[in-house]
Amino acid sequence: MPGRVILLTGPPGAGKTTVAPLLCASAPGPLAVHLETDHFYRVIRKGWLAPWTPESHGQNQVVAAAMMRTAVTYAAGGYEVVADGIITDWVKQVFVDGARDAGVKLDFIVLIPGQAIAAERARTRTADPIADYSPYGALYDLFAAEDAAHAVDTGEVAPKALAARLRAGIEAGRFGLG
């Protein structure tokens, strides 16, 4: 039986990488994968371009396709895949098309705490801390404007409680795409 892909996105400091392993632990079946999309950029050893620059679009298309194919391959093999990262509209569409073609379920969840909370979390996290959050303001606004059907406020919610809330929403079909 095919698994599913859960796209877990939001601005830096939203709690994606913290809650993704908890969602994997609560997967209904015996198989789950936490796919950190940042790793797909970090493995480029030659020719890497900062993914937010205009000249990186070709690289980003290749990386998005690799992320989608990896996630869909696992899901087609029965795994629940929690892919966490910055998933913009065009990347989301790559996943929508790939999941549809492979016949796997796709969920889309936007974690969105208040901007001050996101900035503080990003500043104090262990891996890749962000001292100055101001360059991320436009990205934060992009996620804050996301459809309420897929957005979840992560502000003052403990990670385990958030994972339980997300799992209930996933099982109820709240976050399904297509």
Rank of each mutant, 00 (worst) to 15 (best):
G3E: 05
R4D: 09
I6M: 03
I6N: 10
L7S: 12
L8P: 02
L8H: 08
A20T: 10
L22V: 08
L23K: 11
C24T: 01
A25D: 14
A25P: 12
P28M: 10
L31C: 05
V33Y: 14
T37W: 04
D38C: 13
H39P: 03
F40R: 12
Y41Q: 05
V43Y: 02
I44F: 03
K46V: 07
K46M: 04
T53E: 15
P54K: 13
G58D: 13
V63Y: 02
A64L: 06
V72R: 00
A76S: 03
A76M: 01
G77T: 03
G78W: 00
Y79T: 04
Y79P: 12
D84A: 12
W90V: 07
V91Y: 08
K92A: 06
Q93V: 07
V94R: 01
F95M: 04
F95K: 08
V96S: 01
D97R: 00
G98T: 00
G98V: 00
A102E: 00
A102L: 01
G103V: 05
F108M: 06
I109Q: 05
L111C: 05
P113Q: 13
G114V: 14
Q115S: 04
I117F: 04
A119D: 14
A122D: 01
T124C: 12
T126R: 09
P129I: 07
I130N: 09
D132A: 13
S134H: 13
Y136K: 13
L139Y: 07
F143M: 12
A145H: 05
E146Y: 15
D153K: 10
T154R: 14
E156G: 14
V157R: 15
A158H: 10
K160R: 15
A161D: 14
L162V: 05
R165P: 01
R167Y: 01
G169Y: 02
G169P: 07
G169S: 06
I170C: 15
E171W: 09
A172Y: 11
R174H: 12
